[in-house]
Write a protein that binds this DNA or RNA. Structure first.
Lengths: 192, 192
DNA sequence: CAGGATGTCTAGCGTTGCTAGGATGTGGCC
DNA sequence: GGCCACATCCTAGCAACGCTAGACATCCTG
């Protein structure tokens, strides 16, 4: 009896993840406006209502995709930072990794940082992977810098601005490197 | 004959603007998701198809609202900048004015800088009011600074990041002043 | 005063997110 | 083993969306 129940819950969890990855793939391939509950249901080979037995609505699916993304971004940032022992280079690499992530996975990035969400960032209930992302930026500044959290927050905001304005075509991509160099230079030599 | 035609065109232009302001008011009051063609038509006291005789679709209405906003933002920034003769204070005031604009008119800001658009920013066909906004930031740096355009672009991006992350509740509003002070400090003393 | 152009509305199409209610099939109990 | 109860899943449909076709009315022109 309990074995069967366990198997069912396992299958259910698998399907749960299947929905998330299907939504993400569809969004990455054709953008979020193409992710309709019908198309998503067709893709996971179930009918629409099963989506609602896993998630309260479409927004919840987007949120689930976003949380997946936080983990990946944290790993990306960590790899970039640790590959450079020197702080300035580490910050530069992390920033570049961030912008690359945003341009290579635009739909995922949108779900994480643009679409309406109820995830609080600097908060007790912040999802650990998201907190890990933030900490990667904090780690690019000296430990004795009392304001390093503020530094991290502002540089993250700046990167976010650059990423979104680029993604929507509002600023050109061709001088992205210059922007990046300039940004890092301004922030790395700040008084603590 | 020509008089009648003129009157009609005048009335038509008035109604055109009426649609734009109605869309903006509705968006400011209840957010863009509440701006449906039906509600908008009801508000201007015409039927839906009239909207389509003025605009190619809902997107075009949003664009029209956005362009209205560029003019207002430029005026805001200009006022803030000119009220402070000293460059550092001028930049600080302009940045604050920008963030205030974004928080006080969130829906308008969204139409201008978040929603999909075909407006190019640094381009020959950039609408003059938008170019004027950019020039206000450029004017906060010394004329002999060869990279002032880059400075302006990056600081604008940073402000945009702060504004959008704040608006979506991703970063808390309570330390906005600290962020602003820090940002201005980092950018004003940059080597040209 | 008739004819044609212009302007506006009613009605409806296809699609969206979401849900109610019935059919199907499996698991546990006597 | 037979039956009931429960869980699972799907068909069908609702209200609202952006948008459009075609009928109706209104006004200027000759």
């Amino acid at each position: 009896m309990s074995v069967i129940k366990a198997r069912r819950e396992r299958e259910r969890a698998q399907r749960h993840q299947l929905i998330i990855t299907a939504a993400r793939e569809l969004a990455e391939a054709e953008g979020w406006e193409a992710v309709t509950t019908r198309r998503l249901a067709e893709r996971v080979e179930y009918s629409q209502p099963v989506l609602y037995s896993h998630f309260s609505g479409k927004d919840a699916i987007v949120r689930a995709v976003a949380i997946d993304g936080f983990g990946e971004l944290a790993a990306h940032l960590r790899r970039a930072r640790l590959a450079n022992p020197e702080l300035r280079q580490a910050l530069h690499a992390a920033c570049r990794a961030y912008l690359d992530f945003a341009t290579e996975r635009p739909a995922l990035y949108q779900a994480m940082f643009v679409m309406p969400t109820d995830v609080k960032f600097a908060h007790a209930e912040t999802p650990p992977p998201l907190r890990a992302c933030f900490d990667e930026f904090v780690g690019c500044f000296r430990p004795d810098n009392a304001r390093r959290e503020l530094f991290a927050e502002v540089i993250w905001s700046a990167l976010h601005g650059i990423a979104t304005l680029s993604a929507s075509g509002r600023i050109p991509l061709d001088i992205q490197d210059e922007r990046l160099d300039f940004l890092v230079t301004q922030f790395i030599d700040a008084p603590s």
